[in-house]
Amino acid sequence: MGKTPVYQVIENDIKEKIKKGELNHGDMIHSENELKDMYSVSRMTVRQALNNLVNEGYLYRHKGKGTFVNNIKIEKKMQGLIGFTEEMRRMNKKVRSRILTFEQISADDEVASKLFLETGEEVYFIERIRYGDDIPVLFERLYIPKRIFKDMNQKIMESSFYEYIENTLNIKISHCVQTLEAKAANPRVAEMLEIQKASPVLYMTRNTFLDRGFPFEYVKAYYRADQYRFIQHSVR
């Protein structure tokens, strides 16, 4: 394998500092001349690295002032099944949840169909806001079958539901089926995510299954479009 090009070394160093919190949103990075001296490379090499970081959304330029760290969006990979808590930890972000609603309701036709239940069977209905570094980035409505989780409580949902299933109950999570579309935030969603009404949000539905083949959650999730971007890796 060949040696990593110097411009990529510069890119990776800056990305790593952003991920570790050594560089934060709004911080001005070193000038091209300073970076040229720091890495003992040409100014053209530095410029290539910075251009790539600007194009990828890590940095932005302010004419006449310099180059600054952008507001980095949370990257959610569509091909994996990773919980919110794990996503935030990977990005070194502080994670917390606020439960708005926790109650037992009768499943309507839609929810019953998604969870392989009879219409009218009891499910837990949970509404919660998920925070990354104290910024509300996700508003969720979850439907969970009571027949599978008889001892469900609010404390479990304040942390990681997936970790509870796999580490406490020792049940393996298998796969999920997801849909994703763009929407305008209605008044309630806007209030929960602390954004303007009709702001763009990414609306996802997710049906998640245990390895036994049973669906254990049906989720309607609203992601802040200014904080999230979804990545799909496809192979032909």
Rank of each mutant, 00 (worst) to 15 (best):
M44D: 12
F84C: 04
R61G: 04
R90G: 15
N70R: 08
V46N: 00
K93I: 05
T45R: 04
V54Y: 04
F68V: 08
T45N: 05
M44I: 12
K65W: 05
R96Y: 07
E75P: 02
R47I: 05
E87C: 06
T45D: 07
K77D: 13
K63I: 08
R89M: 13
R98H: 11
N51L: 06
I99L: 03
V46F: 00
E75K: 13
T67H: 01
Q79K: 10
Q79I: 08
L100K: 15
E34I: 09
M38P: 00
N51S: 12
R89W: 11
I29M: 02
K77E: 14
D37G: 00
H30Q: 15
L81N: 15
E56L: 09
R90M: 15
D27S: 07
M38H: 09
R43P: 01
D27E: 07
N52L: 00
I82W: 06
L100R: 15
L53R: 00
R47E: 08
M38L: 14
V41C: 15
M28D: 09
G66K: 03
M88K: 05
T85P: 00
M28T: 13
H62T: 11
E86T: 13
N92Y: 05
F84H: 08
E32Q: 10
S31E: 06
K63S: 11
R47P: 02
T45C: 06
N52M: 03
N70M: 08
M38A: 15
I72L: 14
Y58K: 01
L81H: 14
E56R: 11
K36C: 12
Y39C: 01
E56I: 01
K63D: 07
K76T: 09
F68Y: 15
E32T: 13
M91T: 07
K76S: 09
K76W: 04
I74V: 12
M28G: 12
S97Y: 06
N70Q: 12
G80N: 13
L100D: 15
M88S: 07
I99E: 01
R98L: 11
R96S: 14
L100G: 15
D37F: 02
M38W: 01
D27V: 10
R47M: 05
K77N: 13
F84E: 10
E56N: 06
K93W: 05
L50I: 15
